[in-house]
Each structure stands twice: as structure tokens, then as C-alpha cells.
Nucleic acid binder design. Structure first.
Lengths: 200, 200
DNA sequence: GCCTCTATGTTTTCGCCGTCAACTTAAAGG
DNA sequence: CCTTTAAGTTGACGGCGAAAACATAGAGGC
């Protein structure tokens, strides 16, 4: 409801939380890792070093929210890419895979954060769980499986291929891989198309 | 050459470095992450908190050496599994893939550490680079490609599939996945066999 | 056999971090 | 208008990574 013009800062200080998540995403993009300190984040957001604790229990929770935003973005990207390919399941799967890898390459650190390990000893962050679940649902829907909660074999194979390719690429683990965007995109397309064409 | 009985501690204090790497691997296995402090590591090794700096420039270098040991272990495991399947390329690839995933499941944190991002701004650790390269060479040799330094398409597809499956499994990202070892093993075998049978 | 040299380990110190507790401020609502 | 309370600040604590200054004990030259 706040207008863009006029007094930009809302009442107290502004809606931190949103600002903190945005700033965290910025730093994540700049430094390509999430080893930045909470104090640095607060500094860049223009608040005191303890202010974030009014919105997040600790650093893990803040990062989990950032990851959740990432999963929503991934889901949107996949849904947008899927539009218009409802008729042809093979093409749909290929396009979805290319989108998945492109998403990872576009922001490697965010992708790594999203797929960081789910630790058993820490309490789960609900927003992250639901966002991740919905993203995977978009992926599962493209597979041959029915509407159940399980992932069918073919879909899982495709997902694994695409996820592994994305991971290996962003971690620069493939020896002869091209370093430019165009070459990488061609490589991804080649591998995905070849695998999709041959139904497992 | 040191006997197990008698004076166990060698001259000065022992061969730290080896001890530190071993202890780090232990903690890594116990806590399933590498957020442990260098001071905690020194404590468990029975030395002062600054002693590690006589053997490693910083914490990253120590972790890189741990990762290098992991790559050597992965290479050994794959070579052992490959023995006896020289004649049949399809079976060889499948067995190699199963070994790869089993290695990841056996020690998830070590696997994650090994495949952590290669940062451009940090100086590379030679031992890690060579160990990783040799492990990938063992994998590439199983593919249809020749002896060049590049990875052929089919091999890369297989590697991606297996790497992605391993990653998704250890990060508990697959919704309906079995939690027990036997079930997981069966799932892995099913996916790999199906994909290998259908040449891309 | 002694004596220096140097690798290895210790102590001390520094600045910074995550987190918490106590205090302050200002928007909201009866 | 005045109280309540969410949101932000200040200050403190223990612990960390890293570096500097210091200590010690094998090893090798003489």
C-alpha cells in the first residue's frame, strides 16, 4: 500500500526482513558463497548488528528463507518454460531440464545454498520445505508418473541427470567443459536431448 | 616402522599432519559437516590450537587435503570394482556407477566436501587437483572415449546421472526415497541399469 | 662429542564473529 | 491520551581464525 514516491522509508525503519533477504541475495551473488557475516549483512542494510535477530532466529534461518525464495524462482522458471509444451512429453522434459541447468548456471551460489544438506539435528524451516516441495512437484508433473507423492523411475533418472550435470558444471568439475555461456548451453542441450530421446 | 607397543609417541610429538587429517576425517564422519573449528581439531589431536598452522596454511588447505584423501579412496574403490569387468562395457559402467553412489552414501559429508566448489579467488591445492584428476581418469577410462583429456558425451551423461543421484540421495531431496540401505541400493541399481541399457 | 640450525610446538595477542540481555523508541489501539 | 508492544540499538561475552614471539629438541656439520 505504500506509494513509491514521497517518503520512501516506512514508519519505524522500513520492512527489514524483506530488505535483509534481498541484501543477502545480493551478497550471495557477488561473493558466490554464504560465508558472509550477519554483521556485514546488517551493515549493508543500514541497521545495527543485532537487528536481524528481530526477524530471524539465527543465521541458518535467514539462509533458509533465502533458499526458499530461490525455490519459488526455480518453480516459476520451470512453469514458464513448460507453458506451450503440454502436448509433447519428450520436448517438455528436455525444456524443463535445460531450464533447470540454466537456473543453476545463472546463480551457482544460490543453487548450492538451495540444495545444501538437510540437517537432521536442526529444526526445519517450514517456508523452505514447502517451497522446495512445490518446485519438485512442478518437475514431477512432467514425468510419466501419476499424481501421487512418489517420483517415478524415469522422472528420477531425468532429474538426476540434470541435477548432476548442473552440479558438475557449476563446480567446474568437468575437465574439457567449455567456459563460455554459448558452448556450455550447447553441451547441455546435446546431453539432455540425447538422453531424452532414448527412453530408459 | 614404529611398533605398536612401547613408546608410541615419536620424537617431538608425532607425525601431526597425518594425525590432523585423520582426526578431521573422524569429526567429519561424526558431525556430518566441516563446520568444526580448527581449535576443536587441535584439541582432539592433543596439541595446542596453533600447532596446525605449522602444517597447513589455513583451514581451507587442511580441508583440501582431506578431500584429496577422499578422491584417492574413490579412485581405489572404482578400480577395485572395475576389476573383472574389462570385457563387458555396459556392465562395467553400471558397476562403476553403483560404486560411485555407494561411496557417496557411505560418507555423505566427505563426498560433499570433495565436490565443494572450486573457488577462483583461492589458490588451488595441488594435491587435491591431482587426486581429483586421477579419480576422474578412472571414470573416463570406462567410457567409449579415447585417451584424450576430454570427456565423451556418453560418459558425461552417465557421470551426471550417477553424480546427481548420489547428491540428491545424500541431501534427502527425493520425496519417496527409501530410507534403509537395502531399499536405496535397489533403487540405485534399478535406475542405473535402466539408463545403461538404453544407450544415449 | 659438542654446537648450531631449523623444524615443530606453545603462548600470547588481535580483531571479528554469532548471540544474548538490557535498554530505547515509536506506531497502534482502546 | 496513554499504555502496550513490535522493532531497533547498545553493550557484553565467549570463541574463533590467524599471526607473532618465544621455546625446544632432533639432525647434521665440525
Amino acid at each position: 500500500m505504500s506509494s513509491e514516491t514521497g517518503r520512501t522509508r516506512p514508519y519505524h525503519h522500513g520492512d527489514l526482513r524483506r530488505a535483509l533477504i534481498d541484501t543477502a541475495l545480493q551478497i550471495l551473488q557477488e561473493e558466490q558463497n554464504w560465508e558472509f557475516t550477519l554483521r556485514e549483512l546488517a551493515r549493508r542494510a543500514g541497521v545495527s548488528h543485532a537487528a536481524p535477530y528481530k526477524h530471524f532466529a539465527d543465521k541458518r534461518e535467514l539462509l533458509a528463507e533465502v533458499a526458499a525464495v530461490g525455490f519459488r524462482a526455480l518453480r516459476q522458471a520451470m512453469e514458464a518454460a513448460a507453458a506451450g509444451h503440454e502436448g509433447e512429453p519428450e520436448e517438455l522434459l528436455a525444456v524443463l531440464g535445460e531450464t533447470y541447468v540454466a537456473f543453476a548456471l545463472e546463480s551457482p551460489a544460490r543453487f548450492r545454498l538451495m540444495f545444501g544438506p538437510v540437517r537432521d539435528d536442526e529444526p526445519p524451516v517450514p517456508a523452505l520445505q514447502s517451497a522446495a516441495g512445490e518446485a519438485f512437484e512442478a518437475l514431477r508433473a512432467a514425468g510419466a508418473g501419476s499424481g501421487g507423492g512418489e517420483v517415478d523411475t524415469r522422472t528420477l533418472a531425468a532429474w538426476s541427470l540434470v541435477h548432476g550435470l548442473a552440479t558438475l558444471l557449476i563446480d567446474r568439475r568437468i575437465p574439457g567443459a567449455p567456459s563460455d555461456t554459448a558452448g556450455t548451453r550447447a553441451l547441455v542441450a546435446r546431453i539432455i536431448r540425447a538422453s531424452v530421446r532414448a527412453p530408459a
